[in-house]
Amino acid sequence: MDIPAPAPNGVQLHAPGVAALREAAVGLETAFLAEMLKSAGLGQHRESLGGGPGEGQFHSFLVRAQAEQIARSGGIGLAEILFQSLMEARK
């Protein structure tokens, strides 16, 4: 699932390596959002849920998946800023 993006000035979006740069930018935003969600307390083990000892071990997967979905849905705009910066550095 690619994030739709306007073409930077004169840059071909289908040029070799552009998809990899976009994926790298989304990956960085995902990592950032995962850390923010963890800091906000999302996915913390709650004793009242009764999920057992294994539940706590999989919370990081849930938080990471949620962060990735947020980033791929447009996120907070960080991926687009990173992508544009990477494209500028590529010139």
Rank of each mutant, 00 (worst) to 15 (best):
residue 1 M to L: 08
residue 2 D to Y: 10
residue 4 P to Y: 07
residue 4 P to A: 05
residue 5 A to V: 12
residue 6 P to F: 07
residue 6 P to T: 03
residue 7 A to K: 08
residue 9 N to S: 14
residue 10 G to F: 07
residue 11 V to K: 08
residue 12 Q to K: 07
residue 12 Q to G: 13
residue 14 H to S: 13
residue 14 H to L: 03
residue 16 P to M: 03
residue 18 V to S: 05
residue 18 V to K: 00
residue 20 A to H: 13
residue 20 A to S: 15
residue 23 E to W: 03
residue 23 E to T: 01
residue 25 A to E: 05
residue 25 A to R: 00
residue 26 V to I: 12
residue 28 L to G: 08
residue 28 L to F: 11
residue 28 L to D: 07
residue 31 A to T: 04
residue 32 F to T: 07
residue 33 L to R: 00
residue 34 A to I: 01
residue 34 A to P: 00
residue 34 A to E: 10
residue 35 E to S: 09
residue 35 E to G: 13
residue 36 M to Y: 04
residue 36 M to D: 06
residue 37 L to A: 08
residue 38 K to C: 06
residue 38 K to A: 09
residue 39 S to A: 13
residue 39 S to Q: 13
residue 39 S to G: 12
residue 40 A to E: 13
residue 40 A to C: 08
residue 41 G to E: 08
residue 42 L to N: 09
residue 45 H to S: 12
residue 47 E to W: 02
residue 48 S to I: 01
residue 48 S to M: 10
residue 49 L to W: 11
residue 49 L to H: 13
residue 50 G to N: 07
residue 52 G to A: 05
residue 52 G to V: 01
residue 53 P to C: 06
residue 53 P to H: 09
residue 54 G to A: 09
residue 55 E to G: 08
residue 56 G to Q: 12
residue 57 Q to A: 09
residue 58 F to A: 15
residue 60 S to W: 03
residue 61 F to T: 04
residue 64 R to S: 14
residue 64 R to W: 12
residue 65 A to D: 13
residue 66 Q to A: 12
residue 67 A to K: 00
residue 68 E to F: 08
residue 69 Q to K: 09
residue 69 Q to D: 14
residue 69 Q to L: 10
residue 70 I to E: 02
residue 71 A to F: 00
residue 73 S to F: 05
residue 73 S to I: 01
residue 75 G to L: 02
residue 78 L to V: 11
residue 78 L to S: 06
residue 79 A to C: 12
residue 82 L to W: 03
residue 83 F to M: 02
residue 84 Q to K: 02
residue 85 S to R: 13
residue 85 S to N: 15
residue 87 M to P: 00
residue 88 E to S: 15
residue 88 E to R: 15
residue 89 A to G: 15
residue 89 A to M: 10
residue 90 R to T: 09
residue 91 K to L: 10
residue 91 K to A: 14
